[in-house]
Computed example of a mutant assay.
Amino acid sequence: MPTGSTVLFIHGLWLHASSWDPWIDLFRTAGYQPAAPGWPGDPETVEEARADPEAIADHGIDDVVAHYAKIIDGLAERPILVGHSFGGMIAQKLLGQDLAAAAVAIDAAQIKGVLPLPLSALRSTLPVFRNPANRHRAVTLTAEQFRYAFGNAISEEESLELYTRWTIPAPGKPLFEAAAANFDPHSPAKVDTANEMRGPLLLISGGRDHTVPETVTRATLKQYRHSDAVTDLIDFPDRAHSLTIDHGWREVADTCLSWLGRNGL
């Protein structure tokens, strides 16, 4: 697998692409060429995204995959992908399509074939699922909802600070698509987990994550059992869904850099 230095960071629901800024600085210092392009419809700033939520609405998984595939097509080399939450699912799909040199999927959303559906995950996504019309809308979390879904392993003060700094409305469509994945033979949440020729994949889980509990990540790892390509799992037992943006982000980022180094990337 060719070595690359380009890194694309892919955010998940409810966080703006600028939430990757500390990671970009760190990866650039480590010698990579990092960037964090937003999802289709994402404005340049958090403030703009909050002011115009409908610009983000009604984008599904396939739309986001096609958006990043087009970005990759304009690059000189296949990039390394680092995705969080739904960004982790998108990274896995692109890796399975051989569009990336490697991928890191942090607390990645459920792909097709993953069966566990913990109650905490249902509660975390209830703000979207409580209204079927949200499939075509953008949904905003309250500070209390963010605290449960993202910030349950940090202080209330830090959770509120992260909520104020980084959160934006998110399209409901990807969640509805993921929820129906195991009943849809053509689900956009399907990943080519049997690809033998793909680059290395690192799955990262947070042991206290309410939104993507550790059981979901371990079930995702099992989906790759038919491929001999490198697939690793690293767990952070005391971390929750905010692990990429809270005070402990550097430990997670350094772990990713070490793993990339071990894999010749």
Rank of each mutant, 00 (worst) to 15 (best):
S187M: 05
P127S: 04
P53W: 04
N134W: 00
R78A: 08
G151W: 02
A194K: 10
Y148L: 10
P185F: 07
K222T: 15
C256D: 01
K173D: 07
G88V: 05
A109R: 03
R262Q: 15
V7M: 00
I204L: 08
A219V: 05
T140I: 10
I106Q: 07
I56W: 03
A102F: 02
P200Q: 00
E251I: 13
L265K: 09
E47N: 12
A108V: 06
A35K: 09
G113K: 01
D228Q: 15
D25T: 14
G83H: 06
L160E: 13
F86P: 04
F176E: 02
P79A: 05
L141R: 05
A36Y: 01
A51I: 08
A181D: 01
D246E: 11
N134A: 09
E158R: 03
G31A: 06
S120N: 10
L26K: 13
E251C: 12
D73H: 14
I56R: 05
E196T: 11
E251K: 14
N131A: 11
N182M: 07
A189W: 00
E77W: 08
L162V: 06
D63R: 06
L117C: 13
D228M: 14
R218Y: 06
T211F: 00
L8W: 03
N152L: 10
R135A: 13
A179H: 08
I80N: 04
I168Q: 03
A170M: 08
D98A: 09
C256L: 11
L26V: 13
L233A: 08
G248Q: 05
C256F: 00
H247S: 15
R262P: 12
W20R: 05
A57K: 00
S227M: 01
T167L: 02
N131K: 13
R208P: 04
I106E: 03
S19T: 10
L257A: 07
A109F: 01
